[in-house]
């Protein structure tokens, strides 16, 4: 086997893992704390990319400053959209079964896709590539574009940040506690509603961050959220639903294996993710890092 190619493919896999992690960590966070599986999470990713395009392409032009502004403004904006969705629509499904949440959020996917088309048009839109001013590092025939390196670093930084937040800060601990037992946390004087809105804000913010991070690499089109949501599902199922560490593990497995499959076993690419997902579910249904109580409840 060509070791250089192997290394390059692992690197490519890490870039993809990083984007998958940003999106799926938000999905798993919302599920872990609130037991809500938000199918429209992928639409928030799309929204992140399109808001980024508005700033970078239409407002400021592809300058480094434009990217900086977009990275600062877009994720919280998407977070606010997510929080609003929680307050106005998703909240009302809590007394119903989870199938109603799936259905409502599936409806949101259709609405978001058409809204994006109404606002930004049906044509695919390209970001200017930040690598054009960032450049890349050369290794033999391969190039590691600097923006890709930044993305990998961003993925790991967000992972460490989330981990610290949930294990070290008071708010983070309250959110985890609310996930385990709503009533007791409420009895202790915590406003659970606020916890729910905050976790939706944070989870959606992460999806928006995923969108603005991935946007400059990809091409935006209405419907771009459909693939990422299915892959994110696979990620959190493999890693264990509700676990940030699991989302990281799942992202690394899916991202790197997909990349290796493309290079070495191309006919497996389209099914490999689902095969791993089914295998994990059959052998260890709670995923690699999941806690068993989630299924029983």
């Amino acid at each position: 086997m060509d070791m250089g190619l192997l290394a390059a493919q692992v690197f490519n896999g890490l870039v993809y893992s990083s984007i998958l992690f940003l999106v799926s960590s938000g999905l798993t966070l919302i599920y872990g704390i609130m037991n809500v599986l938000n199918l429209a999470h992928g639409s928030l990713y799309m929204l992140g990319a399109y808001l980024g395009i508005t700033i970078v392409v239409y407002a400021l032009g592809g300058t480094p400053l434009a990217y900086l502004v977009a990275f600062l403004l877009v994720p919280p904006s998407v977070g606010v959209v997510g929080a609003l969705l929680e307050r106005t629509l998703i909240r009302r499904t809590y007394p119903m079964g989870e199938e109603y949440q799936l259905l409502l959020t599936f409806g949101l996917i259709l609405v978001f896709d058409d809204l994006v088309k109404m606002v930004w048009g049906a044509a695919y839109i390209n970001f200017p590539d930040p690598n054009s001013f960032l450049g890349g590092l050369r290794f033999g025939v391969y190039t590691l574009p600097l923006y890709h390196v930044i993305l990998i670093a961003l993925g790991f930084a967000v992972f460490l940040g989330l981990w610290t937040f949930f294990s070290r800060t008071f708010t983070g601990k309250v959110m985890r506690a609310a996930a385990m037992d709503r009533e007791i946390v409420e009895a202790m004087g915590v406003d659970v509603n606020r916890v729910f809105v905050s976790s939706f804000f944070l989870g959606s913010l992460l999806s928006g961050l995923g969108g603005i991070s991935a946007g400059p690499l990809y091409t935006a089109s209405p419907g771009m959220g459909t693939d990422i949501i299915v892959y994110s599902f696979a990620v959190i199922v493999i890693g264990g639903m509700g676990s940030i560490g699991g989302a990281m593990a799942g992202s690394l497995i899916v991202g790197v294996l997909r990349s290796l499959a493309i290079s070495f076993y191309p006919q497996l690419e389209i099914v490999i993710v689902f095969v791993i997902m089914a295998a994990v579910l059959l052998v260890k249904p709670t995923g690699l890092f999941g806690r068993p109580e989630f299924e029983r409840r």
Binding site: L37, M241, I270, M277, A278, L281, P285, E295
Partner: peptide
């Protein structure tokens, strides 16, 4: 059928997508 609830849903989704791929 070894699983229920969301795990059943996702497992069936995985099989569906697998056969789509095939």
């Amino acid at each position: 059928v070894r699983h229920t609830r969301i795990y059943f849903a996702i497992l069936t989704l995985a099989f569906g997508q697998m056969f789509y791929g095939i």
